[in-house]
Write a protein that binds this DNA or RNA. Structure first.
Length: 586
RNA sequence: GCGCUUGUAGCUCAGCCGGAUAGAGCAUCGGCCUUCUAAGCCGAGGGUCGCAGGUUCGAGUCCUGCCAAGCGCGCCA
């Protein structure tokens, strides 16, 4: 409908050009908006006002010329010029009612579009280090990323969902060391656990499992483990030096093969937990991309060679640097450290080279907002590798600030003091958590009050939307109980009986759904869909209270049933995009 | 100090590419269940859109400055 009216305006502009009212080479962008006020019709455009200056004529006169030049179309009931020069369109009721049949015919497909034109887009999200369970901060990225991916798929993109597994690097070594130290405790050794180690209970569980599996095979005397290790922070030392020395000690005492077993015990256990956690959260991936594989297949070296060949690498102070400052970054970045180790950034360059080579039209990275300083260097890397940095879209997610009532909850993965995503799901449920997370714009700070979300979950707005769905299902159950049968065709033939204000409003809102999906997808902003669903639910509830659906008049009854069936379908489709269930009864 | 982001009702937040009288939820107050589920509906109060300039037919929206908050500025990840 919107596109149809836009086309009418385009032809009107062509007519004005031919008449000499507008410069022939001038190509205006036509903006047609939904009217905010029913008095202003269904759609409005400010075209006359934006063109007034170039056309050297006052907006209202120009508006009259545009209206006069509009081709006739039966869907347009009336066109009005209002205010300073708005052109308001009133759509013919019959044409408006058509949406109900459209929704019925399209079913689950209603709202999908082809704007994406099958372009390949990769969405990488969550990608939390597998050093512990996901916490509520990751939950927001998971909910947001999954919803954006769903929306893009609905908008006709070919979507690849990917999780980048940071299964290499110092943090993972610290995890392995933590597992081993807990294992030694399990064996009966007495030692002080490093302040910078992973102290969470899950590490003990992993150690316990490991002990059960391998027995005392990896046991070494505590004295041997701790010999000549620099003191930890509580003893007046440096906690980083302490933990690094411990990691080195673990590696030397166990040897590469056994170290890998301990390392993998931690990695596999945590990664399995994360996978299951996300599955239960309705978040599915096409691929789990291993960082370690980049080193093992030589992909990192290959990426560095490409940078070298492009002339962007140099040596300084014993390290290898990437000259990212020549490509928009504020300073150059180390890719190979003085000690020969690759930095995290080196892996990331290789990963993005891989993404480029896989031929994605769009690469979407969803990161925590604290990583925003990282964007210029990744864009620089893409440029240096010969890719187009415009293809990379980094979407930032602010971590939710947790509160218990008035009290702010401090979180730290290392200390093990955090609320996990699993706890949140258990307490508020998947649906409420998914909905709550994407209610707000992702790059905004969000206050997440656990007390409110857990103890008073009935107030969560997700129930409001779900209730609309359940109520409609209930109406159809009542229909059966009354012994009536729904007459679909008869209802469609009598849609003109839907003349109540509530009905017009609902029909109008239903017709907006495809636009909302498209906008939410292209702007990567699922919260628009959430707001839309709340509005649709509101309009249904208020209609429900104002009018009876199961009336004696069969024509009216079936018309209304078709309307609410359409509402049910759209609520269902919208919630599906958020991976929120649409219950048939509550 | 520099960079990025944000500042809208008591609280949490929307506000489309600059458009018509700035919205919602929660909270507060007052109503509505013998009638399709009251997890609902109807109504009321509540605003210097951080502050000050600028751009123009028109600014919550764009620009500049200031104030405030968050994040980032490692051979960490």
């Amino acid at each position: 409908m919107k596109k149809r009216l836009e086309n009418l305006l385009h032809s009107a502009v062509s007519v004005l050009k031919a008449n000499g009212d507008l410069a022939p080479d001038f190509d205006p962008t036509i903006l047609l908006e939904r009217a905010r006020d029913a008095q202003h019709g269904d759609f409005a455009t400010n075209l006359a006002m934006t063109l007034a200056k170039t056309a050297r004529c006052n907006p209202r006169q120009l508006a009259e010329k545009i209206v006069a030049a509009l081709p006739h179309d039966p869907v347009v009931a009336k066109v009005e010029i209002a205010g300073p020069g708005f052109i308001n369109f009133f759509v013919d009721p019959k044409a408006r009612h058509r949406i109900i049949a459209d929704i019925h015919e399209a079913g689950h497909e209603f709202g999908k579009s082809t704007v994406g034109a099958g372009r390949k887009v990769q969405v990488e999200f969550v990608s939390a280090n597998p050093t512990g369970p996901l916490h509520v901060g990751h939950g927001r990225g998971a909910a947001y990323g999954a919803s954006v991916a769903n929306l893009l798929a609905a908008a006709g993109f070919e979507v690849y969902r990917e999780y980048y597994v940071n299964d290499a690097g110092r943090q993972m070594d610290i995890l392995a060391a933590s597992v081993w130290l807990r294992y030694l405790e399990e064996c009966g050794e007495v030692l002080s656990f490093p302040s910078n180690g992973y102290r969470g209970e899950y590490v003990r569980t992993i150690a316990w499992d490991l002990h059960k599996k391998v027995g005392e095979k990896f046991r070494r005397p505590a004295a041997e483990v701790m010999a000549d290790i620099p003191p930890d922070e509580p003893e007046g030392g440096d906690k980083e030096a302490h933990i690094d020395a411990l990691v080195a000690r673990v590696k030397s005492l166990l040897g590469p093969a056994n170290y890998r077993i301990v390392f993998d015990a931690g990695l596999d256990s945590i990664l399995d937990d994360i996978r299951q956690d996300l599955e239960e959260f309705g978040v599915h991936y096409d691929r789990w991309f291993s960082e370690r594989s980049l080193a093992e297949t030589g992909a990192i070296e290959r990426a560095l060679i490409k940078l070298q060949e492009a002339g962007y690498l140099y040596e300084r102070d014993g390290a290898t640097w990437f000259a990212s400052s020549r490509l928009g970054d504020e300073k150059d970045r180390v890719v190979v450290r003085e000690n020969g180790q690759m930095t995290y950034f080196a892996s990331d360059i290789a990963y993005h080279l891989d993404k480029l080579e896989r031929g994605f039209d769009q690469i979407i990275n969803i990161w925590g907002a604290d990583h925003h300083g990282y964007i210029p260097r990744v864009k620089a890397a893409i440029k240096a590798l010969g890719g187009d940095p415009e293809r990379l879209h980094v979407l930032l997610v602010q971590f939710a600030v947790l509160y218990r009532g008035e009290e702010k909850v401090q979180m730290s993965t290392r200390s093990g003091e955090f609320v996990t995503l699993r706890q949140l799901r258990n307490e508020v449920g998947k649906d409420a958590a998914r909905f709550f997370y994407v209610m707000r714009k992702s790059d905004q700070h969000m206050d997440f009050d656990l007390k409110l979300a857990t103890s008073r979950s009935n107030e969560n707005p997700v129930y409001y939307v779900q209730y609309a769905h359940a109520r409609i299902c209930s109406v159809f159950r009542q229909l059966d109980e009354k012994g009536w049968t729904r007459d679909l065709v008869g209802g469609m033939n009598h849609l003109d009986l839907l003349t109540e204000t509530h009905e017009s409003a609902l029909i109008n809102t239903l017709s907006r759904y495809p636009e909302v999906v498209e906008q939410s997808a292209l702007q990567h902003e699922p919260h628009h869909l959430v707001h839309y669903l709340r509005e649709l639910a509101y309009e249904f509830h208020t209609y429900y209270n104002a009018h009876q659906f199961l009336v004696e008049n069969a024509a009216l009854r079936n018309a209304r049933l078709n309307l609410i069936a359409a509402v049910r379908q759209v609520v269902y489709n919208g919630l599906s995009l958020l991976d929120v269930s649409a219950p048939e009864s509550m």
